[in-house]
Design a protein around this nucleic acid. Structure first.
Lengths: 253, 253
DNA sequence: TAACAACATCACATTAAAAATGTTAGATAT
DNA sequence: ATATCTAACATTTTTAATGTGATGTTGTTA
């Protein structure tokens, strides 16, 4: 997987610097320029960056940060720790809602351990992970496909979801601040709110990087969640603050 | 793709004979027994056959014939001809419904030629084919996932579909007889009926093997379709009969 | 039921196929 | 005019498929 490592690192550099030079990348990774060309072509094809003469720059910083295909590459370690901690909250026989996002997709891959389950999702990654596992009954929330979030949204999704009930939902969000949870996309936001509504219990999955940031819209106050699942990277001051505010904090380890 | 060829042929033999012997397969394909073992293990894992001492037999002839994972392997030539003929009926800008089934999945792969389109489907194969094509807007009908049909069904699907409208739908069915169309599964049947209902026009896609057969339930009379798309294998007597009954017959060539 | 034969499985070796990368020569852009 | 890009092909690396032989299991029948 040398190739994917390299591309991930190119993306990291792009985020840090806004642009990269082809020669520098070739030197840095000790590969030929042609290889870097091919990397950049691929990433451009995925809509993540724009090639320029001699290098590349990010497509558009707003969309970029929000895009599933980019987020997919980042912080996998933390995300899978959060997913494992979420798994511990699931008991066989439950019906479980998973929202869009990579953390949820990772959780989807772990679900076979808790069979039998009913899995309700609008996340195509989860669908792929769950569809052919005996003992995991899959209910898909249809809707307009969003490449950005790799899932289904819109009015069709909302109405489909409104009819369903579940024991627990696992929700992710890109920003938490001031005991409020934020999200940049209002379509996704509406679905997430509904998921919280139709589930008996709801947990927020958010690695430590999500804290102290905001996004365009407020999703819900943090205390609507039964609990918040995060990784060990959260500052202890913040942990105390949340705990004293009565937030149930689950730190994956 | 020697491996897949071999496995497909093993399936064909299974259908013809009901069972196969391991030694004979190894001799027939000029490969080691171990390789045949691995083939059979794989196919057993997919639920298509049952290994027995010294060979294998089909899982259960009813389910077997009905199962997507099996049908996937058969008559690809005819199906893709039908799909191409269906494509000719689609104009850029339309909204198009594709039902479950391999023929629809093949048609899904051809759709980029007619961009822009809105594609409405409960067929996971179509979803995979269409999801990342710019200019194809994808609306998914969610529901309970059926491995057998590789798509989404049930009440969630029906209610989702009921709200939608489309210019044209492409429906497939396993059996046509006596100017009636049949289907073995009532969940799939309900969705197909709804698809016909919400589309301005509907076409039946059925290769010539489908004629003269029946299945458990009647789907609709043949004349509810705007047209019937089939391949050149239909007998000319049948062609005449259908034409004189006022059925619009489109023979792919 | 002991013991043999046929078959199945496992671990590892070998081979074949596919993917990634490198190289070069010509095309294109600044 | 020079640097960069692209395309075609060569090379290397990686992964998948198949084969082999040793070991384990099951079925048969003496």
């Amino acid at each position: 997987m040398r190739r994917d490592e390299r591309r991930k690192e190119i993306l990291d550099l792009l985020v840090k610097q806004g642009s990269v030079k082809l020669d520098e990348l070739a030197a840095h990774f000790a590969v030929s320029k042609m290889t870097i060309h091919r990397d950049l072509d691929e990433l451009e094809g995925e809509g993540i960056l724009r090639k320029t003469r001699g290098g590349a720059s990010i497509e558009s910083s707003m969309d970029f940060e929000a895009d599933y295909r980019f987020r997919e590459h980042r912080d996998t370690r933390e995300k899978s720790m959060v997913a494992r901690a979420a798994l511990a909250l699931i008991e066989p026989g439950m019906s479980v809602i998973l929202n869009d996002g990579t953390t949820a997709a990772l959780l989807g891959e772990l679900l076979p351990a808790k069979r039998p389950l009913t899995v309700i999702t609008n996340n195509l990654g989860v669908i792929e992970a769950v569809k052919s596992v005996p003992g995991l009954s899959l209910v898909v929330i249809g809707g307009n496909y969003s490449q950005k979030f790799n899932g289904f949204f819109g009015i069709v999704a909302e109405e489909g979801l409104r009819k369903l009930r579940a024991d627990v939902s696992f929700i992710s969000a890109p920003a938490i601040n001031n005991q409020k949870v934020f999200h940049m996309d209002h379509e996704a936001l509406r679905i997430k709110r509904l998921m919280i509504e139709v589930a008996q219990q709801s947990y927020l999955m958010a690695d430590h990087r999500k804290f102290g940031r905001t996004a365009l819209n407020e999703l819900v106050p943090l205390d609507v969640f039964t609990g918040v699942i995060t990784d060990a990277g959260v500052e202890s001051a913040l942990v105390e603050e949340l705990k004293s505010a009565g937030i149930e904090l689950i730190v994956a380890s």
